[in-house]
Simulated scan of single mutants.
Amino acid sequence: MNTSPRTPRRNVHALRQLVAHSILAWLSGRNTHAGSLGYAEPAAAPAWTPTSPARVPRDQSAAPETDEHRSRSFTLADAIDVQERLTARDHELIGLLARHRVLTTQHIANLLFADDREASKRLRVLTELGILERFHHGRSPGHGRGQLPWHYTLGPLGAMITAASTETAIPTASDTRARAQRLAHSGGLDHLLGVNDFFARLARTARTSSGCALSAWRDSRAAALMCGNHARPDGYGQWRERGRGTEFFLEYDDATNALAVTLSKLRGYRYLAHIGRGLPVLFVFTDPARRHAFGQGLANRPELAAGLLVATAATGDIHEHGPAAPIWRTGTDTTPQPLIALAPAPTANPAAPIESTSRSPRPTSEEL
């Protein structure tokens, strides 16, 4: 009778996870480098020539379309083997999707490629490798009806590589695909795409304009932590232009909440200004009429924005001129200002997190 002790199965699984973490983390670190992600100005920015997204039959626009590669299975061994085929830019893209969850072909082209055709070629390869998952969504901001661009999120191998680099549990391929399906059908997807579209356009401006840089882009979770949950921004950014710099919080309004809810979000920002952490708050509106109503609300109740620099813009102007252009209106000022002119107060220092309190106001925000 064999009396030798047996290693419990869960311990074997934990050991495999540890080994996989070590190998994947080492390989990921070897293939990445700092100072890119579309945030730093390149030595020579290529011209941008956008092309039209692929068209699909109109009757498919009501629901996401799954990708043909979903039936493949992937293992930790695949995640290790695929590392040799990944470039530094591929790792940058994995990091972007880990933080911001979903990006369209054009978003990714704006952030990392010369144009969307070059991006599409590489994204197709990464999808076939299992690094990415993709789906169609019929209501993407900035695209007409019947034009359904691919939307990309992390695939099984991309999620494994991310887990190794962040020292979290490595997900199974089925878990990753289920997460992608939930994202594709989420009611908050349009809102998330709108936020990411704003920052991707700003990154493109930085890559194609001398002396400009999007030096920071944080998602809603990271931005809320910066605010100690006193406010719940949809994003935070740092913008530099020809030796000048500004920081801002972003609120993306797609008219899914009552206008009173949108106005109530200013309460948390007033508190941040009161403690010396105030920054410009940018409100982006998909509906110009709602933007006008928001301005009227502030004019009727100026105490709502007391001590704040609140600027508004419409998505139509952003798509036509870019987020950094003179499209921002503040208060009753009828002269649009460029983004760089919206400088924060000298005492603002949002880099360090603010202590959170359970009694702090938590305005309603769009979340997935």
Rank of each mutant, 00 (worst) to 15 (best):
S52I: 07
A306Y: 06
D78Y: 05
L193W: 05
R221H: 11
A231L: 03
R6V: 13
G194C: 06
E167I: 13
E241H: 15
A216I: 12
E366V: 14
T168I: 14
K265M: 04
Q296V: 15
R244P: 01
R182N: 11
G322N: 10
S174I: 01
N196P: 03
D67S: 14
H292G: 08
L126K: 02
G146N: 12
G155P: 12
T3M: 12
R179F: 09
G228N: 08
L225D: 11
E251F: 07
L103H: 11
L193P: 01
T347L: 05
L298A: 02
D116T: 06
L15K: 02
P361R: 12
E84S: 15
T208E: 08
R329F: 04
M1Y: 02
I23C: 07
I340C: 11
G307M: 03
R122W: 06
G211D: 03
R99M: 07
A313N: 04
D175K: 10
P50A: 11
L279T: 00
P141L: 03
T127M: 00
A88T: 15
P361K: 10
E84R: 13
H274L: 05
A222R: 15
H137Y: 15
D219H: 09
R16H: 12
A260P: 01
H137Q: 01
R145D: 15
G297R: 07
W328Y: 13
L183T: 08
G194A: 04
A169G: 00
R10N: 10
A164D: 03
T127D: 06
A173K: 01
C212I: 05
P57M: 10
L304I: 05
D175E: 15
D197V: 02
L202N: 05
R218S: 12
G38I: 00
G297K: 01
V102L: 08
G268I: 01
T176H: 02
A88N: 08
V310P: 07
T162Y: 00
P5R: 12
I80H: 08
D287C: 05
R134G: 00
C212A: 15
Y269W: 12
F198I: 14
D190C: 01
L189A: 10
H137K: 03
P363T: 13
N229S: 07
H319T: 02
R277G: 01
S36I: 00
F294K: 09
